[in-house]
Design a protein around this nucleic acid. Structure first.
Lengths: 204, 204
DNA sequence: ACCTGAACACCGTTCAAGT
DNA sequence: ACCTGAACACCGTTCAAGT
């Protein structure tokens, strides 16, 4: 006696992300997501073969919200890449608790592929191709992955800077001075400043 | 009736890392580490206040093996930074299963601070200071964090490239071509190629 | 003071059973 | 076919007790 499916993968992903956003990544479990949906934990296994697949759905959902349409070609190509990177950063920033899940698995997500395709298009128009284009995409991918993660390390990161501020100046002179200067640099300057270093290193 | 301590933090960290190296990060638990040491799980709480602190010890241990002494100043400064980054990459590569633990928490570890101090020294000698030095260190930190993680995504990453290779060429033309070219680029070229883009973007 | 064993409140997942 | 409840083998951590 077949019953109709009570769920869609989309609703499942939304429920998991709701748990993460509300109670943190540590609260994510088959059981909490099932409760969020008002069903038994085991019911989820009709839709997803294990927890990892559920996490994949969450990543797809977060990255699916990134606009992958190419920016207007009359803006300089470096700015167009900044726009693409900024969109990714903003989407991820909307779900800070999901960051550890999101970035590392970016290239599995269909949405991540569309983003890469657009960025590669911009690089190509800038005259970058062959191996250099491979290296450039990979470098952007690496920078974006790391830089966004560092931004969202959260209270731990705050702790970190406090530690640095209290370092013995004689053994860590540069670090102590850099920590003082760091206060003048906002998160956007830091993030896009680093990105621009990378872009400046590219020909074209 | 006081008993002598049976453990050192060093032995504890070594045991945890042994579990990770042998059985994977997923196998790490208070219980498995206790078993590794031949004691009760609760015994560990005399040395560490919770699991997170144990993970911190592991990070310290991995990064503690990185040589932070400045390379000889007669090599060009960009090469000296490449050397420093390479040392970090090699140390982490020795414990691939610990990668997710290691990089994000790098700035908590004393060893990470010594690394940063040396890199800042090189940047300073290259004439980079003030806010630009803050941005430069942060960019290097971000790139290294992300790029090393991507390198160690492992079988998943392999899957990823297989997926890309089978993409519909009409919808992902650049990605399909880039995937073909990617085979010609080895991991070292990829990693240091990206790093050099960043370094080229720095003045000096 | 150091360490242990039992216990509590959780996990992910399997399996047999209900509709 | 879809979903549930009980059960299994795990977690991290608290607490009272042993030496």
């Amino acid at each position: 006696m077949p019953r109709p499916r009570s769920l869609t993968l989309d609703r499942l992903a939304a429920a998991a992300l709701a748990v993460i956003d509300r109670d943190g990544l540590a609260a994510l479990s088959m059981r909490t997501v099932a409760k969020e949906l008002g069903m038994s934990p085991m019911g989820l296994y009709r839709y997803v073969s294990d927890r990892e697949e559920l996490e994949g759905l969450v990543v797809d959902r977060v990255l699916g919200s990134v606009d992958a349409t190419p920016p207007t070609p009359d803006t300089p190509w470096r700015e167009r890449i900044e726009i693409m990177v900024g969109r990714l950063r903003d989407a991820v920033a909307g779900h800070p608790e999901a960051v550890p899940l999101t970035l590392a698995h970016r290239h599995h997500a269909a949405a991540g592929l569309r983003w890469s395709e657009t960025v590669l298009g911009i690089l190509t128009e800038a005259g970058i191709d062959g191996r250099q284009r491979v290296v450039a995409l990979r470098a952007l991918h690496g920078y974006v992955t790391g830089a966004i993660q560092l931004e969202h390390l959260g209270p731990l990161a705050g702790e970190g800077t406090a530690v640095i501020a209290g370092l013995p100046e004689d053994r860590f002179p540069h670090l102590a001075e850099t920590a003082r200067t760091a206060g003048e640099v906002g998160p956007d300057q830091e993030f896009f400043g680093g990105l621009r270093l990378l872009l400046r290193g590219l020909d074209g």
